[in-house]
Design a binder for these strands. Structure first.
Length: 411
DNA sequence: TCTGGGGTCCTAGGACCC
DNA sequence: TCTGGGGTCCTAGGACCC
């Protein structure tokens, strides 16, 4: 394979930086972005807050205890998706080969742009300058021969970093690099590898492949390659990704609930969120998965059922989810509910054969249109209205992409 | 008032069919 | 009466990422 040059760009404390930029009073202060007023955790915190020990995933009270002057900001999805979209447009000025890994991280394959812009470092400086100029925020950029190493590099200097891993330095840099720094090795994998006396990428790269395969199966070979800094995966640009495989929503309720009518109301709301997203992107699915977490947080279950036909209407999803729920005797009040549609197929537009089905479809489309214009849940099922609480007021998770089906808020 | 929400991929075991 | 193997689809659960 020809030598490639890949950039990985990671927006520093993205949600918090956007908020500080939007509101000058927040600048220079410890702030935390959270996903609503209910039982929620810190999604992102500013560097000022991180310096005081505030971490992603902390409960609000925990963050306040760690840093009493912490300012809590409820996240605003549209601001982030809008900024993210604009930033990715900047990237495309340098190469069409841009892969959005999440709302605040992208890879760029600039192999074919080097002759135009001189060098990857030059491109990185130009990107940094344009993002700072347009949005007042910083990013860390890693430059390397592949995606794995570029991501590793962007993590090495934060905030506002620029790190280059030259091909000839790969082995030296990986030799003493802890394995957990690699994207793909999480806490559990780290524990297993540690038990095999493997702590650094150097050790992983030298490990006998058969030994890794015996322990980890098919990914053993991949692990060894990762330890050696090998990664041939391409940068997949927007529009060329694999089709989406599932669409789901889950929500922790404001309080634990055991009233069946209330549980059903939330289920309907979640089903509608899933259905309208599926319809907007013209997919339907035949497997519905229901997930329930109980009040004690630790016990939960998921059950799925597969239908004979593909569906994406909210009430069909709801009915199926409800039929799963009805097979179960709830053991505790419910803390979280989730509904996911999978086994998807992309649908050609077609009109149902029967009049009543056509009417139903048109009514659904009209409702979806209003929701698209005025925000989801502007129009919804009658039975939702009595409930004061909604499941829809959460900040989007950072994994959402700025474009396509993985984004709800950009129309 | 303890602990969010969106995904992907892999494995294991069972049903069913040829 | 007894035998096999492969393939596909399904459910459940756990790993990983942001």
């Amino acid at each position: 394979m020809k030598q490639r040059t890949i950039l990985h760009i990671d927006m520093n404390a993205f949600f918090a930086s956007v908020e500080q930029q939007a509101n000058p009073e927040l600048r220079g202060k410890p702030i935390a972005v959270v996903g609503g007023h209910g039982r929620t955790v810190i999604t992102t915190s500013s560097y000022e807050a991180r310096a005081k020990g505030v971490k992603t995933g902390m409960a609000i009270w925990e963050g306040k205890r760690t840093c009493p002057e912490l300012i809590i900001v409820v996240g605003d999805n549209r601001k982030y998706t809008h900024t993210s979209t604009k930033i990715n447009e900047i990237f495309r000025d340098f190469t069409p080969e841009v892969e959005a890994f999440s709302i605040d991280e992208s890879w760029l394959d600039v192999t074919h742009s080097l002759s135009i812009f001189g060098s990857a470092v030059n491109i990185a400086y130009q990107i940094k300058a344009r993002i700072r100029h347009s949005f007042g925020i910083t990013c860390s950029i890693g430059i390397a021969p592949n995606k794995l190493l570029a991501k590793l590099a962007s993590d090495m200097q934060k905030p506002d970093g620029l790190t280059v891993i030259e091909p000839e330095n790969v082995a030296r840099i990986l030799e003493r690099m802890p394995i957990k720094e690699l994207c793909g090795i999480g806490r559990n994998m780290q524990r297993h590898l540690n038990m095999m006396s493997i702590y650094t990428c150097g050790e992983l790269g030298r490990c006998d492949e058969a030994r890794l395969t015996r322990k980890f199966g098919i990914i053993g070979k991949r692990l060894k390659e990762m330890g050696q800094g090998i990664d041939n995966s391409p940068v997949v640009q927007y529009g060329e990704e694999d089709d989406v495989k599932s669409v789901g929503h889950s929500s922790t309720l404001e309080r634990d609930i055991d009233d069946p009518a209330e549980i059903r109301r939330f289920l309907l709301q979640l089903s509608d969120m899933v259905g309208s997203r599926a319809r907007r992107y013209n997919v339907s699915g035949k497997t519905i998965h229901l997930y329930v977490r109980y009040a004690d947080f630790f016990s939960s279950w998921g059950k799925q059922t597969t239908l004979k036909s593909y569906i994406n209407l909210s009430d069909e999803i709801y009915k199926t989810a409800l039929s799963i729920l009805d097979t179960v005797e709830l053991e505790q009040p419910v803390r979280l509910l989730g509904v996911t549609l999978s086994n998807l197929k992309h649908q050609a537009e077609q009109l149902p054969l029967f009049e009543d089905e056509r009417k139903k479809l048109f009514a659904t489309q009209a409702m979806d249109k209003v929701n698209d214009r005025f925000g989801s849940m502007a129009v919804t099922f009658g039975s939702l209205l009595p409930g004061k609480e909604t499941a829809g007021n959460h900040v989007i998770p950072p994994s959402w992409r700025p474009d396509g089906i993985k984004n709800v808020d950009v129309k």
